[in-house]
Amino acid sequence: MNNYPEITDKVMSVEEAVKKFIKDGSQIALGGFTVVRNPMAVAYEIIRQGIKDIHLVCHSHGQALDVMIGAGCVKRLEIAYGGNGRYAPTCIRFKKAIQRGEIQFEDYSNYQMTLRFLAGALGVPFMLTKSGLGSDLLNHEGFPKEIRKEPKVANKKFAVMQNPFSEEDDKVVLLPALTPDVALIHTQYVGEDGTVRIKGLTFADIEQAKSADVVIVTCEEIVPRSFIRLDPDQNTLPPFFVDAIVKVPYGAHPTGCYTFYDYDPKHLNLYKKVANDDGLFKEYLDEWIYGLSSYDEYLNKVGSESLMKIKANPVLGYAVGLDRK
């Protein structure tokens, strides 16, 4: 039981949310973008529960993607960009996994991936664009042929067709819809009625959430119904799209969350150092994930000094003057 009568069946712990909705082989859409609003609390719990063979679908992603790949949870990846800003221009475990042939991967662009989520959200089989014409994105299929028949894998990467509304030669690129099993979104606020509010940029979170069969939302705060309904222009998703609501303050650490906290340069630099070395990386997983039983323990380990340094100015939205080297 909890104190939220309208969403009592949706509010749960991160352990329960992962146990209930994520299985070996799940196709998971990652919300957020590179160093911002990564669903870290859920990513750590997926690793802790030893979930395997995950099929990740994302546009530009960073820390959650990299740590899940590094922990061996990911079998398959459809992606536009793996990077952590200046801390890792190319995500390090992502890079190693591809260079070593450890994961199946398919490259798309940011806009293409966003359109694929939009197609899933709208219930149409594909969307189209001009982006990709002439690019090797159209020439190289990353996935092996034999997996093309599996559920939730498109039977081909792209199709190019003639614009049927034009008499002249005019090509367009068709992109297959994505309908992931689960979308993971980290946000600032969820109302006591289940309404989701993302502050700052929404990236493709809305399209990702609407394309998925199940949506797990982690949030910094659960706020009164009266607050979230006072200014509905600010809201992002209605309650009926959300299946699990988990209150996890600092749940995107070490990535940032606009108006709450910045990305954590100290932790991202530590990660950069350990990710480059297989032995050190294993120690990092033991120390920061397997060896801890809850997110509270994780935050204790990060420490109040670090958390205070990244605390955002609530007006500007970021930590002013933070040493970001």
């Binding site: 546009h59 530009s60 992606i79 536009a80 960009y81 793996g82 990077g83 221009p89 190319t90 995500c91 490259d107 798309y108 662009s109 940011n110 806009y111 293409q112 664009t129 982006s131 990709g132 690019s135 994105l137």
Partner: peptide, 8 residues
């Protein structure tokens, strides 16, 4: 890192 938005 890959295309990101560069191809687009």
């Amino acid at each position: 890192s890959g295309s990101g938005g560069a191809c687009d």
